[in-house]
């Protein structure tokens, strides 16, 4: 699960000497919020975000917003004047887990990916991570999600998977959520079938509790102590 498998490799970049107006049009045109800034050797020298652009732009409530004079000023100002130099970066062999933790820790929306010589190789955004998890969760594949409450002890998942296998059902994914209850976990198998009545009954007969779908969650905010 390395960053280089999920990152966008055809990166839209900008040069430090380009104008803010160019940066803004690139972002609008490609619906993106981050532009890595590179020099002529494709070396990363900074990053400019839509927030940087907005900070350098008058408020939309002001009269001169997007006026000819304002556009002139934006055309004269360079990306170098507002970009973040030495931004946080990822390496191609950072893992997706690394990326999640870095993005969460640094509170950024995207990270440029560079090699050992600081050459730009790609960019990994929150959107790329969401796509990866959409894939892992099997969203878009035809199937049915179940929610099962299990005791926190070894062997529970095996019993569930065995029961599913006995019913000749393919499993698209299995999510396990921690901290469901003090002593419980919630297991969410995504079954690639429309035919779930039998397996649901079987799991109940085996002593498992099916969780009311309206009570499902895979995450909740940390308890405030």
């Amino acid at each position: 699960m390395f960053v280089n498998k999920s990152m966008t490799t055809r990166v839209i970049t900008i040069r430090p000497e380009d104008s803010l107006l160019q940066a803004r049009s690139l972002m609008t045109e490609h619906s993106i919020r981050h532009l890595p800034v590179t020099d002529e050797d494709n070396t990363l020298v900074g990053i400019v975000t839509d927030r940087d652009i907005r900070s350098a732009t008058p408020s939309i409530l002001q009269d001169d917003f997007d006026s000819a004079k304002e556009r002139e000023r934006m055309a004269a100002a360079t990306v170098a004047s507002i970009m973040t130099r030495k931004p946080a970066v990822l390496k191609p062999l950072h893992t997706i887990q690394d990326a999640l933790m870095i993005i969460q820790g640094k509170k950024v929306g995207a990270l440029p990916v560079v090699d050992e010589n600081n050459k730009l190789k790609g960019i990994l955004s929150v959107r790329d991570l969401m796509r990866a998890f959409t894939n892992v969760m099997g969203i878009g594949e035809p199937g049915t999600l179940l929610g099962i409450m299990v005791e926190e002890k070894v062997g529970q998942l095996k019993r569930i998977v065995d029961a599913i296998t006995e019913e000749n059902i393919s499993c698209g994914s299995v999510l396990v959520a921690k901290h469901w209850d003090e002593t419980k976990r919630a297991v969410f198998p995504y079954l690639l079938t429309n035919n779930v009545a039998r397996i649901k009954k079987k799991l109940v007969d085996m002593g498992f509790t099916l969780i009311d779908p309206m009570e499902w969650y895979i995450d909740r905010l940390p308890k405030s102590e």
Binding site: P142, G143, T144, L145, T193, V196
Partner: peptide
Amino acid sequence: PSFAFPGT
């Protein structure tokens, strides 16, 4: 569709 087949 988050709770039932086919997910669309």
